[in-house]
Design a protein around this nucleic acid. Structure first.
Lengths: 253, 253
DNA sequence: ACATAACGAACATAATCTCTGTTCGTAAAT
DNA sequence: ATTTACGAACAGAGATTATGTTCGTTATGT
């Protein structure tokens, strides 16, 4: 994998400036122009930006989330701890629907080899669970994978979810507050989260602390739809209390 | 990736002997015992064999196909040529359902970036097509991935296929003759092939020459269900004529 | 219970692949 | 027509993976 840090910087710089030249980016990152061009190609293939002769134009709206590969390493340690705790909450033999997003991919890693039936809602999570020794049963949902993200959405995904009943849904989010509920950047994602939650008896939300002060565009479900929340110790205390008051069992790890 | 050649030899030796010791395998391959153990672990995780203290027992019935990773490199050149020819048969804008199997993964490679709507029926093919720049629309079918193979089967896959109508189905096989029809080693696979073929207007079969003299356990469809066959020049002439007589347009590349 | 053989974790080294920068011919813009 | 950017091709550095060795642990047979 290319230098993620440089990709992140490029993404951010282009997003802020709206449009930026190759030479400027090379200066900014300390890399050669050739390397910058290769990075731009890669980011273009993830739908982050558009290239034109001499530079690139951002395709991310202000405040929109950076691409999957760049988010994966943010708060990685916290995500791993959260994932480990979630794994402990699941009992052998359960059937689980596992949402898309980087935190949920970590959960998938933590579940490898466990005797569970898992339906991951994103391709990266599928790839983590498939071909592992051990007795995990993987069910792939249908759907259209979203560019870069690999999150499966659309009618095929809805249909796959509707055909099944899960013991537990593990859902990620872009924002979660007691007042605004669980929100996502993407409308289709929110739709799938809602459907997944509707076919599960128990709902465990996972979110690093940073997400508990945000609300994103697309509303998925109210906080009261959640059974439990697993977050880290950077979560603001008052928000945790508000969520607890809404009936959510909160764990900070 | 580990040394595929050694893995193939181990697989074959264990399959022939039924059961074989680690020391023998080390002698046979020229590798150290530790390496053989690691190989056995890997093959075990692919469901090829069982380990016991001192050696391994084959889980492949006589004549059963070797695992995906080992088949991928057999007749690789022929598969690539076949795949290239199939790519030429597809027109831009078409919707295509792409069967599982190593040949079809090559077809997926040949289709990267093309303006098509593709539903690949195996995870390796999905991974080839996803995240590629270009305008290929990928639809993931639901289903249970078969260990090692990644072929998607079961009711979820059937349902995904039943919900759609394709212009073309590209199907692989384990055996194909005018008399026996198109056959597969796996019952579920055969079922999915049948369903895929039923939802497509045009059916292109792909098979290297070696398959045109074989019939496998599970019958999928008669030869008359095929529109075209793309094979290589190792195919026996008389079989090609029999297939042509059954109404199949045959191309050898 | 004891001896023996096999196992696998841990480390070191070799082989391989990936990333980055450079050069240079080609293609696009002014 | 000229300039500038582009990307293919190659080379070296860096990282990753594969393999072998050693050694303590575990399973099996007597």
């Amino acid at each position: 994998m290319a230098n993620t840090d440089r990709l992140r910087r490029i993404t951010q710089a282009v997003q802020e400036a709206g449009t930026l030249g190759v030479a400027e980016l090379a200066g900014l990152t300390g890399a050669s122009e050739m390397t910058v061009r290769r990075d731009l190609d890669l980011l273009m293939s993830q739908g982050v930006l558009e290239r034109y002769r001499g530079g690139a134009r951002s395709l991310l709206l202000r405040g929109e989330e950076p691409p999957f590969a760049l988010r994966a390493e943010e708060a990685a340690e916290a995500k791993r701890r959260i994932a480990g705790h979630v794994a402990g909450l699941l009992a052998d033999g359960e059937s689980v629907v596992l949402d898309s997003g980087t935190t949920c991919v970590e959960v998938a890693r933590a579940l490898r080899g466990r005797r569970l039936t898992v339906m991951p809602l994103s391709l990266p999570a599928v790839n983590v669970l498939v071909d592992e020794p051990g007795s995990t049963t993987v069910l792939v949902p249908g759907g259209r994978p979203r560019r870069g993200e690999g999150a499966l959405t659309g009618p095929l995904t809805r249909a796959s979810l509707a055909a099944l009943r899960f013991d537990t849904a593990v859902v990620g989010c872009c924002g979660l507050t007691a007042e605004q509920g669980l929100t996502a950047y993407d409308l289709d994602d929110a739709d799938i989260k809602r459907t997944a939650i509707a076919s599960a008896r128990r709902v465990i939300a996972v979110a690093d602390g940073g997400k508990l002060t945000r609300a994103a565009l697309a509303f998925a479900v109210p906080a009261t739809a959640l059974t439990a929340l697993v977050t880290d110790d950077t979560a603001p205390e008052e928000e945790l209390q508000a969520l607890a008051a809404a009936g959510v069992t909160v764990s900070t790890v």
